[in-house]
Design a protein around this nucleic acid. Sequence first.
DNA 1: ACCTGAACACCGTTCAAGT
DNA 2: ACCTGAACACCGTTCAAGT
Lengths: 211, 211
Amino acid sequence: MEHQEPAEHSTRDKILIAAATMLGEDPTARLSVRAVAARAGVSTGSLRHFFPTQQELLDTVIEGVFGWAFPGDPIRDTSRPAADRLVACLQQVLATSGTGEQARETWRVTLDAYVAARPSAGSTSTFLALEREGRRRIEQWLTVLTDEGAIPPGDTEQRARFLSTVVDGLSIERALPTDGARLAAEADTLRLAVLGVVHDVPTVSPDTQVG
Amino acid sequence: MEHQEPAEHSTRDKILIAAATMLGEDPTARLSVRAVAARAGVSTGSLRHFFPTQQELLDTVIEGVFGWAFPGDPIRDTSRPAADRLVACLQQVLATSGTGEQARETWRVTLDAYVAARPSAGSTSTFLALEREGRRRIEQWLTVLTDEGAIPPGDTEQRARFLSTVVDGLSIERALPTDGARLAAEADTLRLAVLGVVHDVPTVSPDTQVG
DNA sequence: ACCTGAACACCGTTCAAGT
DNA sequence: ACCTGAACACCGTTCAAGT
Protein backbone atom coordinates (compact mmCIF):
# COMPACT_ATOMS: atom_id res chain seq x y z
CA MET A 1 0.00 0.00 0.00
CA GLU A 2 1.14 3.53 -0.74
CA HIS A 3 1.60 6.24 1.79
CA GLN A 4 0.59 9.79 1.12
CA GLU A 5 1.83 12.92 2.83
CA PRO A 6 -1.01 14.90 4.37
CA ALA A 7 0.27 17.90 2.42
CA GLU A 8 -2.39 20.45 3.30
CA HIS A 9 -5.89 19.92 4.66
CA SER A 10 -8.61 21.62 2.73
CA THR A 11 -10.66 24.17 4.60
CA ARG A 12 -13.61 21.81 4.53
CA ASP A 13 -11.50 19.06 6.10
CA LYS A 14 -10.15 21.41 8.73
CA ILE A 15 -13.70 22.23 9.74
CA LEU A 16 -14.74 18.58 9.93
CA ILE A 17 -11.64 17.63 11.89
CA ALA A 18 -12.12 20.48 14.31
CA ALA A 19 -15.73 19.52 14.92
CA ALA A 20 -14.94 15.83 15.30
CA THR A 21 -12.10 16.61 17.70
CA MET A 22 -14.33 18.78 19.82
CA LEU A 23 -16.90 16.00 19.91
CA GLY A 24 -14.20 13.54 20.91
CA GLU A 25 -12.95 15.73 23.72
CA ASP A 26 -16.43 16.31 25.05
CA PRO A 27 -19.41 14.41 23.66
CA THR A 28 -21.71 17.07 25.02
CA ALA A 29 -19.82 19.94 23.39
CA ARG A 30 -21.89 22.54 21.65
CA LEU A 31 -20.70 22.75 18.07
CA SER A 32 -21.64 26.34 17.37
CA VAL A 33 -20.56 28.09 14.19
CA ARG A 34 -18.18 30.38 15.97
CA ALA A 35 -16.65 27.71 18.19
CA VAL A 36 -15.97 25.30 15.34
CA ALA A 37 -14.76 28.02 13.01
CA ALA A 38 -12.35 29.34 15.63
CA ARG A 39 -11.04 25.86 16.37
CA ALA A 40 -10.54 25.21 12.66
CA GLY A 41 -8.92 28.61 12.20
CA VAL A 42 -11.37 29.81 9.59
CA SER A 43 -14.08 32.43 9.48
CA THR A 44 -17.72 31.74 10.14
CA GLY A 45 -18.50 32.82 6.61
CA SER A 46 -16.10 30.25 5.27
CA LEU A 47 -17.69 27.56 7.35
CA ARG A 48 -21.07 28.56 6.01
CA HIS A 49 -19.74 28.32 2.46
CA PHE A 50 -19.13 24.60 2.85
CA PHE A 51 -21.94 23.86 5.28
CA PRO A 52 -24.81 26.16 4.40
CA THR A 53 -26.63 25.19 7.53
CA GLN A 54 -25.55 24.21 11.00
CA GLN A 55 -27.62 21.08 10.74
CA GLU A 56 -25.68 20.02 7.65
CA LEU A 57 -22.41 20.38 9.50
CA LEU A 58 -23.65 18.35 12.45
CA ASP A 59 -25.10 15.66 10.23
CA THR A 60 -21.89 15.36 8.24
CA VAL A 61 -19.73 15.07 11.34
CA ILE A 62 -21.93 12.53 13.05
CA GLU A 63 -22.40 10.53 9.88
CA GLY A 64 -18.64 10.19 9.80
CA VAL A 65 -18.46 9.10 13.43
CA PHE A 66 -21.11 6.46 12.82
CA GLY A 67 -19.45 5.38 9.60
CA TRP A 68 -16.45 3.83 11.37
CA ALA A 69 -18.66 1.34 13.10
CA PHE A 70 -20.27 -1.25 10.89
CA PRO A 71 -18.42 -2.62 7.90
CA GLY A 72 -20.84 -4.93 6.13
CA ASP A 73 -24.44 -5.31 7.00
CA PRO A 74 -26.46 -8.31 5.97
CA ILE A 75 -29.51 -6.38 4.76
CA ARG A 76 -29.05 -7.32 1.09
CA ASP A 77 -28.32 -11.00 1.65
CA THR A 78 -31.47 -12.14 -0.11
CA SER A 79 -30.76 -15.77 0.66
CA ARG A 80 -32.15 -15.10 4.14
CA PRO A 81 -35.70 -14.06 5.04
CA ALA A 82 -36.17 -10.32 5.28
CA ALA A 83 -37.14 -10.46 8.94
CA ASP A 84 -33.98 -12.40 9.82
CA ARG A 85 -31.80 -9.89 8.04
CA LEU A 86 -33.41 -6.97 9.81
CA VAL A 87 -32.96 -8.74 13.14
CA ALA A 88 -29.29 -9.28 12.33
CA CYS A 89 -28.82 -5.60 11.52
CA LEU A 90 -30.44 -4.55 14.78
CA GLN A 91 -28.21 -7.00 16.62
CA GLN A 92 -25.23 -5.22 15.11
CA VAL A 93 -26.51 -1.92 16.43
CA LEU A 94 -27.12 -3.44 19.81
CA ALA A 95 -23.64 -4.94 19.82
CA THR A 96 -22.16 -1.43 20.06
CA SER A 97 -23.74 -1.14 23.50
CA GLY A 98 -21.50 -3.91 24.73
CA THR A 99 -22.42 -6.16 27.59
CA GLY A 100 -21.84 -6.25 31.33
CA GLU A 101 -19.30 -3.73 32.56
CA GLN A 102 -18.93 -2.20 29.11
CA ALA A 103 -22.67 -1.64 28.84
CA ARG A 104 -22.68 -0.03 32.29
CA GLU A 105 -19.82 2.25 31.30
CA THR A 106 -21.60 3.29 28.11
CA TRP A 107 -24.71 4.28 29.99
CA ARG A 108 -22.76 5.88 32.81
CA VAL A 109 -21.25 8.32 30.33
CA THR A 110 -24.55 8.99 28.61
CA LEU A 111 -26.41 9.56 31.85
CA ASP A 112 -23.71 11.72 33.36
CA ALA A 113 -24.03 13.93 30.32
CA TYR A 114 -27.79 14.10 29.94
CA VAL A 115 -29.60 12.86 33.03
CA ALA A 116 -27.45 13.59 36.07
CA ALA A 117 -27.62 17.32 35.44
CA ARG A 118 -30.06 19.00 33.15
CA PRO A 119 -28.21 19.18 29.86
CA SER A 120 -27.35 22.44 28.13
CA ALA A 121 -29.14 23.38 24.95
CA GLY A 122 -25.97 22.70 23.00
CA SER A 123 -25.38 19.19 24.21
CA THR A 124 -29.04 18.48 23.63
CA SER A 125 -28.81 19.32 19.95
CA THR A 126 -25.71 17.14 19.66
CA PHE A 127 -27.58 14.25 21.23
CA LEU A 128 -30.57 14.71 18.99
CA ALA A 129 -28.34 14.73 15.93
CA LEU A 130 -26.75 11.45 17.02
CA GLU A 131 -30.13 9.94 17.65
CA ARG A 132 -31.40 11.07 14.28
CA GLU A 133 -28.42 9.51 12.54
CA GLY A 134 -29.11 6.19 14.24
CA ARG A 135 -32.70 6.30 13.10
CA ARG A 136 -31.66 7.24 9.59
CA ARG A 137 -29.60 4.07 9.44
CA ILE A 138 -32.55 1.94 10.42
CA GLU A 139 -34.69 3.79 7.90
CA GLN A 140 -32.28 2.80 5.16
CA TRP A 141 -32.63 -0.85 6.08
CA LEU A 142 -36.40 -0.54 6.08
CA THR A 143 -36.29 1.13 2.68
CA VAL A 144 -34.25 -1.74 1.24
CA LEU A 145 -36.80 -4.25 2.50
CA THR A 146 -39.72 -2.14 1.33
CA ASP A 147 -38.21 -1.93 -2.15
CA GLU A 148 -37.90 -5.69 -2.09
CA GLY A 149 -41.57 -5.93 -1.26
CA ALA A 150 -40.75 -7.67 2.01
CA ILE A 151 -42.29 -4.82 3.99
CA PRO A 152 -45.56 -3.15 3.05
CA PRO A 153 -45.26 0.54 2.29
CA GLY A 154 -45.90 2.71 5.32
CA ASP A 155 -44.43 5.31 7.59
CA THR A 156 -40.77 4.37 7.53
CA GLU A 157 -39.77 7.12 9.95
CA GLN A 158 -42.24 5.92 12.54
CA ARG A 159 -41.17 2.30 12.16
CA ALA A 160 -37.55 3.29 12.55
CA ARG A 161 -38.43 5.21 15.67
CA PHE A 162 -40.14 2.13 17.07
CA LEU A 163 -37.21 -0.19 16.35
CA SER A 164 -34.85 2.40 17.75
CA THR A 165 -36.83 2.42 20.98
CA VAL A 166 -36.67 -1.38 21.20
CA VAL A 167 -32.89 -1.28 20.80
CA ASP A 168 -32.71 1.44 23.47
CA GLY A 169 -34.72 -0.75 25.80
CA LEU A 170 -32.52 -3.79 25.23
CA SER A 171 -29.44 -1.64 25.61
CA ILE A 172 -30.40 -0.19 28.98
CA GLU A 173 -31.43 -3.63 30.15
CA ARG A 174 -27.95 -4.84 29.35
CA ALA A 175 -26.63 -2.33 31.86
CA LEU A 176 -29.12 -3.29 34.56
CA PRO A 177 -29.05 -6.42 36.69
CA THR A 178 -30.22 -9.48 34.88
CA ASP A 179 -30.95 -13.13 35.23
CA GLY A 180 -29.73 -15.71 32.81
CA ALA A 181 -32.91 -15.77 30.78
CA ARG A 182 -32.58 -12.26 29.49
CA LEU A 183 -29.76 -12.84 27.06
CA ALA A 184 -31.65 -15.58 25.27
CA ALA A 185 -34.75 -13.40 25.24
CA GLU A 186 -33.01 -10.61 23.35
CA ALA A 187 -33.21 -12.30 20.00
CA ASP A 188 -36.85 -13.20 20.57
CA THR A 189 -37.64 -9.64 21.50
CA LEU A 190 -36.01 -8.34 18.33
CA ARG A 191 -37.99 -10.89 16.35
CA LEU A 192 -41.27 -9.74 17.87
CA ALA A 193 -40.31 -6.13 17.20
CA VAL A 194 -39.58 -6.89 13.57
CA LEU A 195 -42.91 -8.69 13.39
CA GLY A 196 -44.64 -5.43 14.26
CA VAL A 197 -43.04 -3.85 11.25
CA VAL A 198 -43.08 -6.62 8.67
CA HIS A 199 -46.61 -7.96 8.67
CA ASP A 200 -49.33 -6.08 6.79
CA VAL A 201 -52.55 -7.64 8.05
CA PRO A 202 -54.97 -5.20 9.71
CA THR A 203 -55.71 -6.21 13.28
CA VAL A 204 -58.88 -4.16 13.75
CA SER A 205 -62.14 -5.43 12.36
CA PRO A 206 -63.15 -3.64 9.14
CA ASP A 207 -66.22 -1.97 10.65
CA THR A 208 -64.29 -0.24 13.40
CA GLN A 209 -61.63 0.92 11.00
CA VAL A 210 -60.32 4.42 11.47
CA GLY A 211 -60.97 6.82 8.58
CA MET B 1 -71.05 18.40 39.16
CA GLU B 2 -70.56 22.02 40.04
CA HIS B 3 -69.47 24.69 37.66
CA GLN B 4 -66.94 27.32 38.64
CA GLU B 5 -66.46 30.71 37.05
CA PRO B 6 -62.94 31.13 35.68
CA ALA B 7 -62.72 34.36 37.65
CA GLU B 8 -59.13 35.29 36.93
CA HIS B 9 -56.30 33.12 35.72
CA SER B 10 -53.12 33.43 37.68
CA THR B 11 -50.07 34.60 35.80
CA ARG B 12 -48.61 31.13 36.11
CA ASP B 13 -51.71 29.61 34.57
CA LYS B 14 -51.77 32.16 31.78
CA ILE B 15 -48.23 31.15 30.90
CA LEU B 16 -49.02 27.43 30.92
CA ILE B 17 -52.17 27.92 28.89
CA ALA B 18 -50.34 30.05 26.34
CA ALA B 19 -47.58 27.47 25.97
CA ALA B 20 -50.00 24.54 25.73
CA THR B 21 -52.08 26.38 23.15
CA MET B 22 -49.04 27.12 21.03
CA LEU B 23 -48.07 23.46 21.24
CA GLY B 24 -51.57 22.48 20.23
CA GLU B 25 -51.56 24.79 17.24
CA ASP B 26 -48.18 23.56 16.11
CA PRO B 27 -46.43 20.62 17.82
CA THR B 28 -43.13 21.78 16.38
CA ALA B 29 -43.56 25.33 17.65
CA ARG B 30 -40.62 26.84 19.36
CA LEU B 31 -41.65 27.84 22.86
CA SER B 32 -39.17 30.63 23.42
CA VAL B 33 -39.37 32.86 26.46
CA ARG B 34 -40.40 35.88 24.48
CA ALA B 35 -42.94 34.07 22.34
CA VAL B 36 -44.69 32.43 25.26
CA ALA B 37 -44.53 35.56 27.41
CA ALA B 38 -46.03 37.67 24.64
CA ARG B 39 -48.79 35.14 23.99
CA ALA B 40 -49.59 35.05 27.69
CA GLY B 41 -49.44 38.83 27.93
CA VAL B 42 -46.75 38.89 30.59
CA SER B 43 -43.16 39.98 30.70
CA THR B 44 -40.22 37.63 30.24
CA GLY B 45 -39.10 38.44 33.73
CA SER B 46 -42.44 37.37 35.10
CA LEU B 47 -42.26 34.12 33.18
CA ARG B 48 -38.82 33.52 34.64
CA HIS B 49 -40.14 34.15 38.10
CA PHE B 50 -42.42 31.13 37.88
CA PHE B 51 -40.25 29.02 35.61
CA PRO B 52 -36.63 29.75 36.49
CA THR B 53 -35.45 27.86 33.48
CA GLN B 54 -36.85 27.26 30.03
CA GLN B 55 -36.51 23.53 30.57
CA GLU B 56 -38.73 23.72 33.62
CA LEU B 57 -41.43 25.46 31.64
CA LEU B 58 -41.25 22.85 28.90
CA ASP B 59 -41.30 19.97 31.37
CA THR B 60 -44.32 21.38 33.16
CA VAL B 61 -46.26 21.87 29.95
CA ILE B 62 -45.47 18.41 28.60
CA GLU B 63 -46.23 16.79 31.93
CA GLY B 64 -49.65 18.39 31.77
CA VAL B 65 -50.27 17.15 28.26
CA PHE B 66 -49.36 13.63 29.31
CA GLY B 67 -51.34 13.81 32.50
CA TRP B 68 -54.86 14.06 31.06
CA ALA B 69 -55.12 10.42 30.24
CA PHE B 70 -55.65 7.29 32.30
CA PRO B 71 -57.91 6.59 35.27
CA GLY B 72 -58.64 2.83 35.55
CA ASP B 73 -57.39 -0.38 34.00
CA PRO B 74 -59.09 -0.59 30.62
CA ILE B 75 -58.14 -4.16 29.75
CA ARG B 76 -61.66 -5.59 30.10
CA ASP B 77 -63.46 -2.77 28.32
CA THR B 78 -64.59 -4.99 25.46
CA SER B 79 -66.17 -2.08 23.65
CA ARG B 80 -62.68 -1.17 22.47
CA PRO B 81 -60.43 -3.21 20.19
CA ALA B 82 -58.03 -5.46 22.08
CA ALA B 83 -54.97 -3.74 20.68
CA ASP B 84 -56.22 -0.35 21.83
CA ARG B 85 -56.82 -1.63 25.33
CA LEU B 86 -53.37 -3.12 25.58
CA VAL B 87 -51.84 0.11 24.35
CA ALA B 88 -53.78 2.00 27.02
CA CYS B 89 -52.51 -0.34 29.74
CA LEU B 90 -48.93 0.07 28.62
CA GLN B 91 -49.40 3.83 28.62
CA GLN B 92 -50.43 3.54 32.24
CA VAL B 93 -47.23 1.69 33.04
CA LEU B 94 -45.23 4.26 31.17
CA ALA B 95 -46.96 7.06 33.01
CA THR B 96 -45.29 5.93 36.24
CA SER B 97 -41.96 6.90 34.72
CA GLY B 98 -43.06 10.50 34.75
CA THR B 99 -41.74 13.06 32.33
CA GLY B 100 -39.00 15.64 32.28
CA GLU B 101 -37.28 16.18 35.60
CA GLN B 102 -39.28 13.41 37.24
CA ALA B 103 -38.21 10.91 34.59
CA ARG B 104 -34.59 11.98 35.03
CA GLU B 105 -34.87 11.61 38.79
CA THR B 106 -36.34 8.12 38.43
CA TRP B 107 -33.49 6.95 36.25
CA ARG B 108 -30.90 8.76 38.34
CA VAL B 109 -31.93 6.69 41.33
CA THR B 110 -32.07 3.45 39.38
CA LEU B 111 -28.69 3.98 37.80
CA ASP B 112 -27.02 5.12 40.99
CA ALA B 113 -28.17 1.88 42.51
CA TYR B 114 -27.40 -0.55 39.71
CA VAL B 115 -25.13 0.96 37.10
CA ALA B 116 -22.79 3.39 38.83
CA ALA B 117 -21.27 0.62 40.90
CA ARG B 118 -21.69 -3.06 40.43
CA PRO B 119 -24.71 -3.81 42.59
CA SER B 120 -24.70 -6.10 45.58
CA ALA B 121 -26.44 -9.45 45.40
CA GLY B 122 -29.19 -8.18 47.67
CA SER B 123 -30.10 -5.12 45.66
CA THR B 124 -29.94 -7.19 42.51
CA SER B 125 -32.56 -9.59 43.74
CA THR B 126 -34.75 -6.66 44.71
CA PHE B 127 -34.44 -5.24 41.25
CA LEU B 128 -35.19 -8.55 39.61
CA ALA B 129 -38.24 -8.98 41.79
CA LEU B 130 -39.57 -5.58 40.80
CA GLU B 131 -38.90 -6.31 37.17
CA ARG B 132 -40.61 -9.67 37.41
CA GLU B 133 -43.64 -8.06 39.01
CA GLY B 134 -43.89 -5.58 36.15
CA ARG B 135 -43.74 -8.39 33.61
CA ARG B 136 -46.29 -10.41 35.55
CA ARG B 137 -48.72 -7.54 35.27
CA ILE B 138 -48.26 -7.39 31.51
CA GLU B 139 -48.66 -11.16 31.35
CA GLN B 140 -52.03 -10.87 33.05
CA TRP B 141 -53.22 -8.42 30.43
CA LEU B 142 -52.00 -10.72 27.70
CA THR B 143 -53.81 -13.64 29.31
CA VAL B 144 -57.08 -11.72 29.39
CA LEU B 145 -56.77 -10.97 25.69
CA THR B 146 -55.74 -14.51 24.89
CA ASP B 147 -58.79 -15.87 26.74
CA GLU B 148 -60.91 -13.51 24.70
CA GLY B 149 -59.38 -14.95 21.58
CA ALA B 150 -58.00 -11.58 20.63
CA ILE B 151 -54.44 -12.87 20.88
CA PRO B 152 -53.39 -16.24 19.49
CA PRO B 153 -52.00 -18.66 22.06
CA GLY B 154 -48.26 -18.43 22.34
CA ASP B 155 -45.40 -17.74 24.69
CA THR B 156 -46.97 -15.16 26.98
CA GLU B 157 -43.83 -14.71 29.04
CA GLN B 158 -41.78 -13.91 25.97
CA ARG B 159 -44.36 -11.44 24.73
CA ALA B 160 -44.51 -9.73 28.11
CA ARG B 161 -40.74 -9.48 28.11
CA PHE B 162 -40.84 -7.83 24.70
CA LEU B 163 -43.48 -5.29 25.70
CA SER B 164 -41.60 -4.62 28.90
CA THR B 165 -38.48 -3.83 26.87
CA VAL B 166 -40.42 -1.41 24.70
CA VAL B 167 -41.71 0.39 27.79
CA ASP B 168 -38.17 0.50 29.16
CA GLY B 169 -36.96 2.05 25.92
CA LEU B 170 -39.68 4.69 25.96
CA SER B 171 -39.02 5.36 29.60
CA ILE B 172 -35.30 5.97 29.24
CA GLU B 173 -36.01 8.13 26.20
CA ARG B 174 -38.23 10.27 28.40
CA ALA B 175 -35.22 10.97 30.59
CA LEU B 176 -32.95 11.79 27.67
CA PRO B 177 -33.07 14.97 25.57
CA THR B 178 -35.96 15.05 23.16
CA ASP B 179 -37.59 17.04 20.42
CA GLY B 180 -41.29 17.75 20.17
CA ALA B 181 -41.93 14.90 17.75
CA ARG B 182 -41.17 12.21 20.32
CA LEU B 183 -44.29 12.82 22.32
CA ALA B 184 -46.54 12.05 19.39
CA ALA B 185 -44.38 9.07 18.44
CA GLU B 186 -44.82 7.31 21.78
CA ALA B 187 -48.35 6.17 21.07
CA ASP B 188 -47.39 5.02 17.58
CA THR B 189 -44.48 3.04 18.96
CA LEU B 190 -46.71 1.30 21.48
CA ARG B 191 -49.15 0.49 18.71
CA LEU B 192 -46.44 -1.09 16.58
CA ALA B 193 -45.23 -3.06 19.59
CA VAL B 194 -48.70 -4.40 20.26
CA LEU B 195 -48.96 -5.28 16.58
CA GLY B 196 -46.02 -7.64 17.04
CA VAL B 197 -47.95 -9.45 19.75
CA VAL B 198 -51.53 -9.38 18.55
CA HIS B 199 -51.48 -10.59 15.00
CA ASP B 200 -51.55 -14.30 14.32
CA VAL B 201 -50.67 -14.52 10.67
CA PRO B 202 -47.41 -16.37 10.01
CA THR B 203 -44.95 -14.16 8.22
CA VAL B 204 -42.93 -17.07 6.90
CA SER B 205 -44.06 -18.79 3.73
CA PRO B 206 -46.57 -21.63 4.31
CA ASP B 207 -44.10 -24.39 3.40
CA THR B 208 -41.81 -23.45 6.26
CA GLN B 209 -44.70 -23.22 8.69
CA VAL B 210 -44.14 -24.46 12.20
CA GLY B 211 -46.33 -27.35 13.27
C1' DA C 1 -14.59 29.61 -6.12
C1' DC C 2 -13.16 30.65 -1.75
C1' DC C 3 -12.95 33.55 2.26
C1' DT C 4 -13.71 37.46 5.43
C1' DG C 5 -16.13 39.80 9.14
C1' DA C 6 -19.87 42.87 10.14
C1' DA C 7 -24.76 43.03 10.65
C1' DC C 8 -29.36 41.15 11.65
C1' DA C 9 -32.76 39.00 14.20
C1' DC C 10 -33.09 35.93 17.29
C1' DC C 11 -32.11 33.11 21.91
C1' DG C 12 -31.96 32.09 27.48
C1' DT C 13 -30.69 34.23 31.61
C1' DT C 14 -29.73 37.91 34.95
C1' DC C 15 -30.91 41.76 37.57
C1' DA C 16 -31.88 46.55 39.34
C1' DA C 17 -36.00 48.70 39.89
C1' DG C 18 -40.70 49.20 40.74
C1' DT C 19 -45.49 47.70 43.21
C1' DA D 1 -44.16 38.15 46.42
C1' DC D 2 -44.91 39.50 42.01
C1' DC D 3 -43.74 41.95 37.86
C1' DT D 4 -41.23 44.89 34.51
C1' DG D 5 -37.96 45.64 30.82
C1' DA D 6 -33.23 46.56 29.81
C1' DA D 7 -28.82 44.39 29.40
C1' DC D 8 -25.63 40.58 28.58
C1' DA D 9 -23.58 37.03 26.16
C1' DC D 10 -24.68 34.05 23.23
C1' DC D 11 -26.89 31.82 18.72
C1' DG D 12 -27.60 30.75 13.21
C1' DT D 13 -27.85 33.05 8.97
C1' DT D 14 -27.12 36.64 5.46
C1' DC D 15 -24.36 39.35 2.63
C1' DA D 16 -21.35 43.05 0.60
C1' DA D 17 -16.71 43.01 -0.07
C1' DG D 18 -12.38 41.24 -0.99
C1' DT D 19 -8.89 37.57 -3.38
